[in-house]
Design a protein around this nucleic acid. Structure first.
Length: 290
DNA sequence: AACTAAAGCAACCGCGGGGAT
DNA sequence: GATCCCCGCGGTTGCTTTAGT
């Protein structure tokens, strides 16, 4: 027995959206805000599934969307983030303001895969294609990223130090510099070997619980079980993924800010200046990605 | 100019996570 | 603790546009 359908399909439109439907959706969200997608179509007078409305808004109608071609910097950032995160398109999208997960996913499948292949890099493992073909058994060297099932990332990160799908170097400056490398080193002749270098280097370093770093605040009463080392590791990872602190917000201050006003929108790159967006806090006091 | 193949992209589908009851 | 319900995500589909012959 499957789930009941999310909406009455017999009375919902499908396929391309008309201008009138777009306008209705825009008008409704402007006056009522996002949320409660299930009831939105009825309230807005749309004969659409709530999921369809949500998708249309997020992927096409949202006012903060950046249309147009991806820049070289964005390309490199996506590649880098994909090497770290796998097919976590929503998380990757969070690092690219104005871009949607769907857009990035499509761009990856149509452009970046080919780009990597042309560089001689396997788009799944981010390792050189010839090396991927003659790779050692997984039990011997497991430095590739389990992109096929993103869940493996957090599982491996959390539970295993021996398995090293992908990690951040914490013992030197590579963590702090990873963001800058992404921004600054695109197009260099050595760039194409970086993903492998990262994997090889970091395979000897400390593991990080990636999901923890992204999904939970670092210091709340409910996360006291997290050790200080883990918290530090999480912050270091965030530092790698987050925009570099501005002069007005030095690293230590930024860390404090993360600890106090944990808005994950900000952590993963939304422009918020460290302010909570107000939509992240759940009823139980946790913060979530929104 | 007409046809076909390939590429690009918007939208849909099904599933899993997590809050509410 | 079990169940229900909603939201969001990733994978896939299919339509439209562009390039090639």
């Amino acid at each position: 027995m499957g789930r009941s359908p999310c909406c009455e399909k017999a009375h919902t439109n499908k396929g391309a959206w008309t201008k009138e439907e777009d306008q209705r959706l825009i008008n409704y969200i402007r006056s009522h805000g996002e949320g409660c997608w299930r009831s939105l179509p009825t309230a807005a007078g749309l004969q659409r599934c709530g999921k369809s409305c949500r998708l249309r808004w997020i992927n096409y109608l949202r006012p903060d969307l950046k249309r147009g071609n991806f820049t070289e910097e964005e390309d490199e950032l996506i590649i880098k983030l994909h090497s770290l995160l796998g097919n976590k398109w929503s998380v990757i999208a969070g690092r690219l303001p104005g871009r949607t997960d769907n857009e990035i996913k499509n761009y990856w499948n149509t452009h970046l895969k080919r780009k990597l292949i042309s560089r001689g890099i396997d788009p799944q493992s981010h390792r050189p294609l010839n090396a991927a073909a003659t790779s050692t058994p997984a039990s011997a060297v497991t430095t590739t990223i389990p992109t096929t099932t993103p869940k493996n990332i957090c599982t491996d990160f959390t539970n295993s130090v021996d398995q090293k799908p992908n990690i951040i170097n914490q013992s030197n400056n590579t963590t702090d510099s990873s963001y800058d490398e992404t921004k600054c080193n695109s197009g260099t002749t050595t760039e194409e070997t970086k993903p492998l270098e990262i994997s090889q280097k970091t395979s000897q370093q400390l593991m990080i619980n990636l999901e923890l770093s992204i999904g939970l605040p670092l210091h709340t009463k409910t996360t006291d079980h997290i050790s200080s080392a883990e918290s530090t590791a999480s912050y270091n990872f965030l530092a790698a993924l987050s925009p570099p602190p501005t002069a007005a917000v030095p690293v230590t201050a930024a860390a404090e800010m993360v600890a106090k006003t944990v808005c994950l929108c900000w952590q993963i790159g939304f422009q918020g200046g460290g302010q909570s967006c107000g939509k992240c806090k759940t009823a139980t006091g946790f913060y979530r990605y929104c």
